[in-house]
Amino acid sequence: MTSARETVLGRVRDALALAPTPATAVPRAYRTGWALPDPERLALFTDRLLDYRAEVHPCTADRTAKVVAEVLRDHGARRIGVPAGLDPRWLDAYDGEVCQDAADIPAPRLDSLDAVVTASAAGCAETGTIFLDGSPDQGRRALSLVPDLHLCVVDLSSVEAGVPEAVARLVPERPTTLISGPSATSDIELERVEGVHGPRTLVVVIRTDR
């Protein structure tokens, strides 16, 4: 008996034999290698994030801990989760409870956290997108998903101007999440509403000298 695999692949070959078409070259005349100076990239990235109603805090690297602590305090986040590889100095000024995540902590326990603080792998200014790839300073995907506030620290040097430049930075095998603003839906009369299942608040701290 022929397996489904053989049958389907056989049908695909038959279909192509019945209607052969010449090989297609892919024209890639779209914009690639787009570069913008730091101030313009920062301005564009910030504009897009604000458009999604994310909260944006540009700062220099030496003020990271201060800004992180202020944001968490302003949002009343008393108990936060962090990935194991997060730079501990970022939390030097925070006086709440810090829970380090581990793979064996059940996801429902993450629901009791007020916020999560992570780093990021890359960014895209044109679309206001942050890329997480599960590196030790970003943690497993559940960690940045379940808590209702996500504070993400992004180095401006990792923010590319356009989508092709940002995608080129990714490592395909890593579990990757693209985040463009807080969770949202357009399902009711096609009007955008922020805040459904993912974090309802996204705060982006952009380190302008890193």
Binding site: R48, D51, Y52, A103, C124, E126, T127, G128, T129, G134, R140, R141, A142, L170, P172, E173, R174, P175, T176, T177, L178, I179, S180, G181, P182, S183, A184, R192, G198
Partner: peptide, 19 residues
């Protein structure tokens, strides 16, 4: 009609300790 949708997930097989 958005510049980017809020979330895109990319995964490759199984990642130990994640998902």
């Amino acid at each position: 009609g958005e510049r980017m949708n809020p979330y895109t997930s990319l995964w490759t097989g199984v990642t130990p300790g994640d998902g």
